[in-house]
C-alpha cells in the first residue's frame, strides 16, 4: 500500500546545523494491518510518519502510495491525497478552542465543500459511535482528556480515510484510556482500515492487535525487530 524507497530527510541542508533525520529508509506498509513504528525519541519516528502521511516531502528517495509515485507532487495535490486517504491522530488532541466539538470534528471536511447538512449528519454519527453525542454542542475546553482524544479520533475519521495515522496516541493517556484506544484501533482494523502508529509504549506495541513492529534508531531501520 505504502512503499518507501531509500528515503532521506535532511533539515537545514547546506548550513552547519545540517542534520539528517531519516537516512535511507526502505519500508513497505501493508494494507489492513496495524503497524507500529517504535524507537526512542529523536529516532526520526515523527519525521518518517509525516513523510508516510504526505505531510512533508523527503529530501531524496521515493514514496509510492498504491503504486502511484507521489514524491514530487506539489503541495496542493499532496494535500488533496492526504485529506482523502489519511486520518491523523496526534499526541495532543490538537483541538481548536473556542468552537464546538461538532465544528472541530467537521473541520477537515471544510475545504471539500460538502453540503453542511450531510456533513453534520456524518459528524454526529461519528460522535455517536464513540459515545460523544451528548458533547456535540459543548466547547472543547470543557472536555476531559479522554473525551478530547476521542473527539480527535472522530475528526480523523470524518473524511472516511483508508489509513489512520497516530503519533504517540497514548502518551498522555492513563492505562485505562490507553486500552480503550487500542480497542478503537481494533475496530478500525475490523473495518478494513490500515493503521500506522508511532509509539514507545509497550502497551501499544505489545498489543495483540498490532501486526507489524518497525524499529527505528538514528533515522535508520533496525534490521532485527525487537
Amino acid at each position: 500500500m505504502i512503499e518507501l524507497l531509500n528515503v532521506r530527510k535532511v533539515f537545514n541542508a547546506g548550513s552547519p546545523s545540517e542534520f539528517s533525520a531519516i537516512n535511507g529508509v526502505d519500508l513497505r506498509i501493508a494494507e489492513n494491518r496495524v503497524t507500529v513504528l517504535k524507537g526512542p525519541s529523536g529516532s526520526g519516528k515523527t519525521t518518517l510518519l509525516s513523510i508516510v502521511g504526505c505531510m512533508s516531502r523527503p529530501s531524496a528517495g521515493r514514496v509510492k502510495l498504491r503504486d502511484r509515485e507521489i514524491t514530487s507532487l506539489p503541495e496542493r495535490f499532496l494535500t488533496d491525497i492526504r485529506r482523502k486517504t489519511f486520518g491523523f491522530i496526534f499526541q495532543q488532541p490538537n483541538l481548536i478552542k473556542g468552537i464546538s466539538v461538532l465544528e472541530n470534528v467537521m473541520l477537515p471536511a471544510y475545504p471539500l465543500g460538502e453540503k453542511r447538512t450531510t456533513l453534520k449528519v456524518k459528524a454526529l454519527h461519528g460522535l455517536n459511535e464513540l459515545n460523544l453525542s451528548g458533547k456535540a454542542a459543548s466547547k472543547v475546553e470543557w472536555l476531559s482528556g479522554g473525551e478530547a482524544q476521542r473527539v480527535s479520533i472522530v475528526r480523523a475519521l470524518i473524511n472516511d480515510p483508508q489509513i489512520i495515522i497516530a503519533d504517540e496516541p497514548t502518551a498522555h493517556l492513563d492505562t485505562k484510556l490507553s486500552y480503550r484506544f487500542m480497542e478503537i484501533v481494533e475496530q478500525f482494523k475490523a473495518q478494513g482500515k490500515t493503521v500506522i502508529i508511532t509509539s514507545h509504549d509497550p502497551l501499544v506495541y505489545d498489543s495483540k492487535t498490532v501486526d507489524d513492529v518497525v524499529n527505528l534508531r538514528d533515522g535508520k531501520l533496525e534490521s532485527e525487530p525487537a
Partner: peptide, 11 residues
C-alpha cells in the same frame, strides 16, 4: 524532482 529545501521554498 528535487526534495531540497530550496525547491520546497520555491514551491
Amino acid at each position: 524532482d528535487s526534495g531540497d529545501e530550496l525547491q520546497l521554498v520555491l514551491e
